[in-house]
Design a binder for these strands. Structure first.
Lengths: 225, 225
DNA sequence: ATGTGCTTCAAACGTATGTTTCAAACAGAC
DNA sequence: GTCTGTTTGAAACATACGTTTGAAGCACAT
């Protein structure tokens, strides 16, 4: 948690504040005062606020994408020849995320929340940065999904992947708030691992749903007003 | 599309800009210049930026929640006694959203995107506003879901509902961009109705997934490094 | 025409932001 | 110790924001 180097102190503070409040809502002054560092240090070490955002993502995304690649390597090796199943692919992704070495106990949820924010908040510069830095593991994941669901048409698969992304990004991006609600309403504590364990079967079942229902079932239509 | 009244022009512009860029990233000056209205008009007619955000939500959420209530009424009447099925409940919601009278062709995706933002961007004041204004149809929907999935534990159901919300809000909120990609890559046209038709079976299948897998399947674990 | 209540307008206010500046402090090599 | 390149510090910069102000414009009843 506590690095004494200025750069790391800034990254730690920024990561946490970005995850809590989003990018635009977090000012450099909040970051530098939380990091106990001079305001000018951000622009000195990173160049700009946007570059700091990129650095925050790079710090955890680069090791994560390496972990993910090797997880996919091992998975494919174990399946020699046969394409991995949908469940195996989703689990490889989940386990890679969960097993990433964390700087502190909030590590995973910060990680997830930042990924959700990256997708959710428009932030054009961020999306471009992520696309050109991490497109490889992403398209590899897409390829595995395709092999694991040969029964789906390209269009069906496309949309169902979007649904999966949405459920994941959305849930993770508000997971702290959701956990609070759950704690208050049901008196239950939840870890990110448990959320992931609930999410994977949901996604797998949705992905493999039998019918694409192109018209509503009889009797479900509202009468025309 | 084009209302000549100042209040409506502001609401139209704000709605579109908020959906595109989020709340903090949209300034009053952007809104008023898009609406071709004086800057002070927002504070004159609405009182503050936050109150404008509330008004944007109220304008589409109030009629929607009325539509939804009556859809649920009809559904329960048709089922007399028996609880509606999960598919029926989801379809009632979907049809209500799709059939809402829209101000323009982007109506539904703006609507969905705003709902997603309301959940995603922290914006404490918004969450409070929505909770106290629209808790009724929300909890009614939750009640129907509960009756339709008696096999789920409260905690499982809670999380699966979050997953459904996520898949829906996320997909609909970026459906314009997604449709563009689909058109270019696969040469297919897609309507919001068709997306909904693909979404509902996905959600229903995920919601009814058999197992909540609290440990990964054997052989899916990564060897310890 | 005159007065009245509501609406628009240009301008300014105070505050917060990201960024820059330049002198001071520091560390390591000679 | 002195020089050199790097890092920190306090202060200022320019800009953008939400909000407020007070005069001007307008519609309409009297």
């Amino acid at each position: 948690m506590a690095q004494s180097d200025t750069v790391d102190r800034i990254l730690d503070a920024a990561e946490e504040l970005f995850a809590e409040r989003g990018f635009s809502e977090t000012s450099l002054r909040m970051i530098t005062s939380k990091a106990k560092v001079n305001l000018a240090a951000v622009n000195y070490h990173f160049g700009s606020k946007n570059a700091l955002i990129h650095a925050v993502f790079a710090r955890f995304l680069t090791p994560f994408s390496a972990t993910l690649e090797s997880a996919f390597d091992q998975l494919e090796a174990r399946c020699d020849g046969k394409p991995p199943t949908l469940n195996q692919t989703l689990w490889a992704l989940t386990e890679s995320a969960v097993r990433m070495p964390q700087r502190n106990e909030k590590g995973i949820s910060i990680f997830m929340r930042l990924l959700g924010l990256a997708y959710t908040q428009s932030q054009g510069h961020l999306r471009k940065f992520l696309e050109q830095e991490y497109s490889e593991p992403f398209s590899r994941f897409m390829g595995l999904l395709k092999e694991a669901t040969p029964q789906l048409s390209a269009v069906d698969r496309y949309w169902r992947i979007q649904f999966m992304l949405g459920a994941t990004a959305f849930t993770m991006s508000s997971s702290d708030a959701l956990q609070d609600i759950l704690r208050n309403k049901l008196g239950v504590e939840t870890t990110v691992q448990e959320i992931a364990a609930r999410l994977v079967p949901f996604l797998a079942a949705g992905m493999q749903a039998q019918d694409t229902m192109l018209t509503p079932p009889a009797g479900a239509r509202l009468p025309v007003a």
